[in-house]
Protein backbone atom coordinates (compact mmCIF):
# COMPACT_ATOMS: atom_id res chain seq x y z
CA UNK A 1 0.00 0.00 0.00
CA UNK A 2 1.14 3.54 -0.67
CA UNK A 3 1.63 6.22 1.96
CA UNK A 4 -1.34 8.54 2.29
CA UNK A 5 -2.79 11.24 4.49
CA UNK A 6 -5.65 10.17 6.71
CA UNK A 7 -8.33 12.62 7.70
CA UNK A 8 -11.24 11.94 9.97
CA UNK A 9 -13.69 14.86 9.83
CA UNK A 10 -16.37 15.09 12.53
CA UNK A 11 -19.08 16.66 10.41
CA UNK A 12 -20.37 16.51 6.87
CA UNK A 13 -19.30 20.10 6.16
CA UNK A 14 -15.81 19.35 7.38
CA UNK A 15 -15.69 16.22 5.19
CA UNK A 16 -16.73 18.24 2.14
CA UNK A 17 -14.06 20.84 2.92
CA UNK A 18 -11.33 18.17 3.10
CA UNK A 19 -12.52 16.72 -0.21
CA UNK A 20 -12.33 20.17 -1.75
CA UNK A 21 -8.82 20.61 -0.43
CA UNK A 22 -7.43 17.34 -1.89
CA UNK A 23 -9.50 17.22 -5.09
CA UNK A 24 -9.60 14.05 -7.14
CA UNK A 25 -6.65 12.48 -5.31
CA UNK A 26 -8.75 11.99 -2.20
CA UNK A 27 -10.92 8.92 -1.69
CA UNK A 28 -13.77 8.66 0.75
CA UNK A 29 -13.78 5.60 2.98
CA UNK A 30 -16.60 4.39 5.22
CA UNK A 31 -16.61 0.64 5.95
CA UNK A 32 -13.55 0.10 3.76
CA UNK A 33 -14.67 -3.31 2.53
CA UNK A 34 -14.20 -2.33 -1.12
CA UNK A 35 -11.66 0.47 -1.06
CA UNK A 36 -9.11 -1.11 1.28
CA UNK A 37 -9.07 -4.26 -0.85
CA UNK A 38 -8.41 -2.20 -3.95
CA UNK A 39 -5.67 -0.27 -2.16
CA UNK A 40 -3.98 -3.48 -1.09
CA UNK A 41 -4.07 -4.64 -4.70
CA UNK A 42 -2.58 -1.26 -5.63
CA UNK A 43 -5.44 -0.61 -8.01
CA UNK A 44 -6.15 2.62 -6.21
CA UNK A 45 -3.49 4.81 -4.61
CA UNK A 46 -5.12 7.88 -3.13
CA UNK A 47 -3.00 10.65 -1.67
CA UNK A 48 -5.60 11.14 1.06
CA UNK A 49 -8.22 8.95 2.69
CA UNK A 50 -11.19 10.83 4.09
CA UNK A 51 -12.84 8.58 6.66
CA UNK A 52 -16.50 9.21 7.39
CA UNK A 53 -16.46 7.07 10.54
CA UNK A 54 -16.55 10.02 12.93
CA UNK A 55 -19.20 11.99 11.02
CA UNK A 56 -22.30 12.18 13.19
CA UNK A 57 -25.89 11.66 12.12
CA UNK A 58 -25.37 9.88 8.82
CA UNK A 59 -26.22 6.38 10.07
CA UNK A 60 -29.89 6.76 10.93
CA UNK A 61 -32.60 4.55 9.53
CA UNK A 62 -35.88 6.45 9.82
CA UNK A 63 -39.37 6.81 8.40
CA UNK A 64 -39.78 9.32 5.62
CA UNK A 65 -43.25 10.20 4.25
CA UNK A 66 -44.48 6.68 4.85
CA UNK A 67 -41.32 5.28 3.25
CA UNK A 68 -37.84 4.88 4.65
CA UNK A 69 -34.68 6.91 4.63
CA UNK A 70 -31.45 4.99 5.19
CA UNK A 71 -28.49 7.15 6.14
CA UNK A 72 -25.37 6.51 4.06
CA UNK A 73 -23.35 5.29 7.05
CA UNK A 74 -25.90 2.69 8.17
CA UNK A 75 -24.24 -0.69 7.73
CA UNK A 76 -25.67 -3.55 5.71
CA UNK A 77 -26.17 -5.42 8.96
CA UNK A 78 -28.14 -2.53 10.44
CA UNK A 79 -30.35 -2.38 7.36
CA UNK A 80 -30.82 -6.15 7.52
CA UNK A 81 -31.83 -6.21 11.19
CA UNK A 82 -33.67 -2.88 11.47
CA UNK A 83 -37.25 -3.51 12.71
CA UNK A 84 -38.36 -0.58 10.55
CA UNK A 85 -36.92 -2.04 7.35
CA UNK A 86 -38.17 -5.53 8.19
CA UNK A 87 -41.68 -4.28 8.83
CA UNK A 88 -42.06 -1.68 6.07
CA UNK A 89 -39.99 -3.12 3.21
CA UNK A 90 -39.14 -6.74 4.07
CA UNK A 91 -37.62 -7.46 0.64
CA UNK A 92 -34.98 -4.81 1.34
CA UNK A 93 -34.02 -6.32 4.70
CA UNK A 94 -33.87 -9.72 3.01
CA UNK A 95 -31.62 -8.37 0.24
CA UNK A 96 -29.16 -6.90 2.73
CA UNK A 97 -29.22 -10.22 4.60
CA UNK A 98 -28.03 -11.98 1.45
CA UNK A 99 -24.91 -9.84 0.96
CA UNK A 100 -21.54 -11.62 1.34
CA UNK A 101 -20.82 -12.63 4.96
CA UNK A 102 -21.91 -11.24 8.29
CA UNK A 103 -18.41 -9.82 8.87
CA UNK A 104 -18.64 -7.79 5.69
CA UNK A 105 -22.22 -6.74 6.42
CA UNK A 106 -21.08 -5.32 9.77
CA UNK A 107 -18.60 -3.05 7.99
CA UNK A 108 -20.01 -2.25 4.54
CA UNK A 109 -22.25 0.81 4.50
CA UNK A 110 -25.40 1.49 2.52
CA UNK A 111 -24.01 4.65 0.93
CA UNK A 112 -20.55 3.23 0.36
CA UNK A 113 -21.96 0.37 -1.66
CA UNK A 114 -23.83 2.81 -3.90
CA UNK A 115 -20.80 5.05 -4.43
CA UNK A 116 -18.63 2.01 -5.20
CA UNK A 117 -21.05 1.10 -8.04
CA UNK A 118 -19.88 -2.44 -8.56
CA UNK A 119 -22.59 -3.95 -10.81
CA UNK A 120 -22.35 -7.25 -8.91
CA UNK A 121 -23.76 -5.91 -5.67
CA UNK A 122 -27.17 -7.00 -4.37
CA UNK A 123 -28.82 -3.99 -2.64
CA UNK A 124 -28.78 -1.74 -5.75
CA UNK A 125 -30.87 -4.33 -7.60
CA UNK A 126 -33.70 -4.31 -5.06
CA UNK A 127 -33.40 -0.56 -4.54
CA UNK A 128 -33.71 -0.05 -8.30
CA UNK A 129 -36.88 -2.15 -8.42
CA UNK A 130 -38.24 -0.15 -5.48
CA UNK A 131 -37.62 3.11 -7.36
CA UNK A 132 -35.27 4.44 -4.65
CA UNK A 133 -33.73 7.91 -4.78
CA UNK A 134 -30.19 8.90 -3.78
CA UNK A 135 -29.47 11.97 -1.66
CA UNK A 136 -26.20 13.68 -2.59
CA UNK A 137 -24.32 16.48 -0.86
CA UNK A 138 -21.52 18.58 -2.28
CA UNK A 139 -19.92 21.91 -1.48
CA UNK A 140 -22.54 23.50 -3.78
CA UNK A 141 -25.48 22.02 -1.86
CA UNK A 142 -27.78 19.01 -1.96
CA UNK A 143 -29.45 17.19 -4.80
CA UNK A 144 -31.43 14.04 -5.24
CA UNK A 145 -31.41 11.55 -8.11
CA UNK A 146 -33.43 8.47 -8.98
CA UNK A 147 -31.12 5.51 -8.48
CA UNK A 148 -31.65 4.60 -12.16
CA UNK A 149 -29.85 7.82 -13.12
CA UNK A 150 -27.15 7.44 -10.48
CA UNK A 151 -25.29 4.47 -11.99
CA UNK A 152 -23.51 5.54 -15.17
CA UNK A 153 -20.98 2.86 -16.08
CA UNK A 154 -18.83 0.10 -14.63
CA UNK A 155 -17.94 1.46 -11.15
CA UNK A 156 -18.96 4.95 -12.30
CA UNK A 157 -21.70 7.09 -10.84
CA UNK A 158 -23.23 10.52 -11.29
CA UNK A 159 -21.25 11.75 -8.25
CA UNK A 160 -19.14 14.77 -9.15
CA UNK A 161 -15.71 15.19 -7.53
CA UNK A 162 -16.25 16.42 -3.97
CA UNK A 163 -19.76 14.99 -3.67
CA UNK A 164 -20.95 12.36 -1.19
CA UNK A 165 -23.94 10.05 -0.92
CA UNK A 166 -25.75 11.05 2.28
CA UNK A 167 -28.80 8.75 2.19
CA UNK A 168 -31.11 6.60 0.13
CA UNK A 169 -34.86 7.14 0.20
CA UNK A 170 -37.28 4.33 -0.53
CA UNK A 171 -41.03 4.73 -1.00
CA UNK A 172 -43.18 2.01 0.56
CA UNK A 173 -44.51 -0.64 -1.81
CA UNK A 174 -48.22 0.00 -2.56
CA UNK A 175 -50.93 -2.21 -1.05
CA UNK A 176 -51.71 -5.44 -2.91
CA UNK A 177 -48.12 -5.75 -4.04
CA UNK A 178 -45.40 -8.31 -3.54
CA UNK A 179 -41.65 -8.33 -3.96
CA UNK A 180 -38.85 -10.85 -4.28
CA UNK A 181 -35.07 -10.80 -4.51
CA UNK A 182 -33.22 -13.84 -5.81
CA UNK A 183 -29.67 -14.50 -6.78
CA UNK A 184 -28.06 -17.38 -8.56
CA UNK A 185 -24.94 -18.51 -6.72
CA UNK A 186 -23.43 -21.55 -8.37
CA UNK A 187 -20.18 -21.39 -6.38
CA UNK A 188 -20.30 -20.28 -2.74
CA UNK A 189 -22.91 -18.54 -0.60
CA UNK A 190 -20.78 -15.44 -0.11
CA UNK A 191 -19.81 -15.06 -3.76
CA UNK A 192 -21.11 -12.40 -6.11
CA UNK A 193 -24.15 -13.57 -8.04
CA UNK A 194 -23.96 -14.93 -11.56
CA UNK A 195 -27.34 -13.24 -12.01
CA UNK A 196 -29.41 -11.38 -9.40
CA UNK A 197 -33.05 -10.40 -9.93
CA UNK A 198 -35.55 -8.33 -7.98
CA UNK A 199 -39.22 -8.18 -8.94
CA UNK A 200 -42.15 -6.18 -7.66
CA UNK A 201 -45.68 -7.00 -8.76
CA UNK A 202 -48.53 -4.60 -8.01
CA UNK A 203 -52.00 -6.09 -8.57
CA UNK A 204 -55.18 -4.59 -10.01
CA UNK A 205 -58.12 -4.18 -7.60
CA UNK A 206 -59.33 -7.64 -8.69
CA UNK A 207 -56.33 -8.98 -6.79
CA UNK A 208 -55.40 -11.24 -9.69
CA UNK A 209 -54.12 -9.32 -12.70
CA UNK A 210 -50.91 -7.32 -12.67
CA UNK A 211 -51.26 -3.55 -12.75
CA UNK A 212 -47.56 -2.78 -12.77
CA UNK A 213 -44.38 -4.82 -12.52
CA UNK A 214 -40.83 -3.74 -11.94
CA UNK A 215 -37.86 -5.96 -12.66
CA UNK A 216 -34.26 -5.10 -11.83
CA UNK A 217 -31.16 -7.16 -12.56
CA UNK A 218 -27.61 -7.29 -11.25
CA UNK A 219 -24.33 -8.82 -12.51
CA UNK A 220 -25.55 -8.78 -16.12
CA UNK A 221 -24.32 -5.41 -17.35
CA UNK A 222 -21.93 -2.59 -16.50
CA UNK A 223 -24.56 -1.22 -14.08
CA UNK A 224 -27.59 -2.73 -12.33
CA UNK A 225 -30.48 -2.28 -14.75
CA UNK A 226 -34.26 -2.42 -15.24
CA UNK A 227 -35.80 -4.87 -17.70
CA UNK A 228 -38.41 -2.41 -18.93
CA UNK A 229 -39.51 -4.32 -22.02
CA UNK A 230 -40.28 -7.31 -19.82
CA UNK A 231 -42.15 -5.08 -17.35
CA UNK A 232 -44.33 -3.74 -20.18
CA UNK A 233 -45.51 -7.25 -21.09
CA UNK A 234 -46.94 -7.82 -17.64
CA UNK A 235 -49.28 -4.85 -17.20
CA UNK A 236 -52.92 -5.95 -17.29
CA UNK A 237 -52.09 -9.64 -17.51
CA UNK A 238 -52.75 -12.60 -15.27
CA UNK A 239 -49.97 -14.94 -14.18
CA UNK A 240 -49.31 -17.79 -16.62
CA UNK A 241 -46.43 -19.95 -17.73
CA UNK A 242 -46.47 -18.33 -21.17
CA UNK A 243 -46.35 -14.86 -19.72
CA UNK A 244 -43.39 -15.72 -17.47
CA UNK A 245 -41.57 -17.22 -20.41
CA UNK A 246 -42.21 -14.14 -22.55
CA UNK A 247 -41.05 -11.84 -19.75
CA UNK A 248 -37.88 -13.89 -19.32
CA UNK A 249 -37.17 -13.69 -23.06
CA UNK A 250 -37.76 -9.92 -23.03
CA UNK A 251 -35.43 -9.51 -20.04
CA UNK A 252 -32.65 -11.24 -22.02
CA UNK A 253 -32.70 -8.37 -24.51
CA UNK A 254 -32.10 -5.83 -21.71
CA UNK A 255 -28.86 -7.39 -20.46
CA UNK A 256 -25.30 -7.22 -21.72
CA UNK A 257 -23.27 -9.49 -19.44
CA UNK A 258 -19.50 -9.80 -19.28
CA UNK A 259 -18.00 -13.27 -19.54
CA UNK A 260 -16.04 -14.23 -16.43
CA UNK A 261 -15.41 -17.15 -14.08
CA UNK A 262 -19.05 -16.96 -12.91
CA UNK A 263 -20.27 -17.83 -16.38
CA UNK A 264 -20.08 -16.88 -20.03
CA UNK A 265 -22.12 -13.96 -21.33
CA UNK A 266 -24.43 -16.39 -23.15
CA UNK A 267 -24.98 -18.46 -20.01
CA UNK A 268 -25.74 -15.41 -17.91
CA UNK A 269 -28.22 -14.23 -20.53
CA UNK A 270 -30.06 -17.56 -20.38
CA UNK A 271 -30.01 -17.55 -16.58
CA UNK A 272 -31.46 -14.03 -16.63
CA UNK A 273 -34.67 -15.43 -18.16
CA UNK A 274 -34.81 -18.19 -15.55
CA UNK A 275 -34.25 -15.87 -12.59
CA UNK A 276 -36.74 -13.29 -13.86
CA UNK A 277 -39.39 -16.01 -14.15
CA UNK A 278 -38.71 -17.22 -10.60
CA UNK A 279 -38.61 -13.75 -9.07
CA UNK A 280 -41.87 -12.78 -10.79
CA UNK A 281 -43.57 -15.95 -9.59
CA UNK A 282 -42.55 -15.28 -5.98
CA UNK A 283 -43.48 -11.60 -6.15
CA UNK A 284 -46.84 -12.41 -7.70
CA UNK A 285 -47.63 -14.98 -5.02
CA UNK A 286 -46.67 -12.49 -2.31
CA UNK A 287 -48.89 -9.86 -3.94
CA UNK A 288 -51.86 -12.24 -3.96
CA UNK A 289 -51.30 -13.02 -0.30
CA UNK A 290 -51.25 -9.26 0.38
CA UNK A 291 -54.46 -8.80 -1.65
CA UNK A 292 -56.12 -11.72 0.12
CA UNK A 293 -56.87 -13.51 -3.15
CA UNK A 294 -54.85 -16.55 -2.31
Amino acid sequence: MNAFDYRSPRSLDEALAVLGEYGEDARVVAGGTALVTMMRQRLVQPSCLVSLRAVQGLDRIETDNGGLRLGALATHREAETSPLVRERIPVLAETFRRVATVRIRHMATVGGALAHADPNQDPPVTLLALGARVEIRGAQGSRELPLAEFFRDYYETALEPGELVTAIRVAPPPPASGAAFLKFLPRTADDYATVAAAAIVILEPDGVRCREARIALGSVGVTPLRARSAEALLAGEGLSENLLRAAGEAAKTAVDPLSDHRGSAAYKREMTAVMVGRALTQAWEAARRAAGTR
Binding site: E24, A34, M38, L43, V44, H116, D118, Y154, Y155, E156
Partner: peptide, 12 residues
Amino acid sequence: RGHFKIQIGPIR
Protein backbone atom coordinates in the same frame (compact mmCIF):
# COMPACT_ATOMS: atom_id res chain seq x y z
CA ARG B 1 3.59 14.31 -26.08
CA GLY B 2 0.39 14.38 -24.08
CA HIS B 3 -1.50 13.66 -20.90
CA PHE B 4 -4.59 11.48 -20.78
CA LYS B 5 -6.99 10.75 -17.93
CA ILE B 6 -9.40 7.84 -18.02
CA GLN B 7 -11.37 5.76 -15.57
CA ILE B 8 -11.60 2.02 -16.15
CA GLY B 9 -13.76 0.45 -13.51
CA PRO B 10 -12.57 1.63 -10.11
CA ILE B 11 -9.16 2.65 -11.46
CA ARG B 12 -8.47 6.21 -12.44
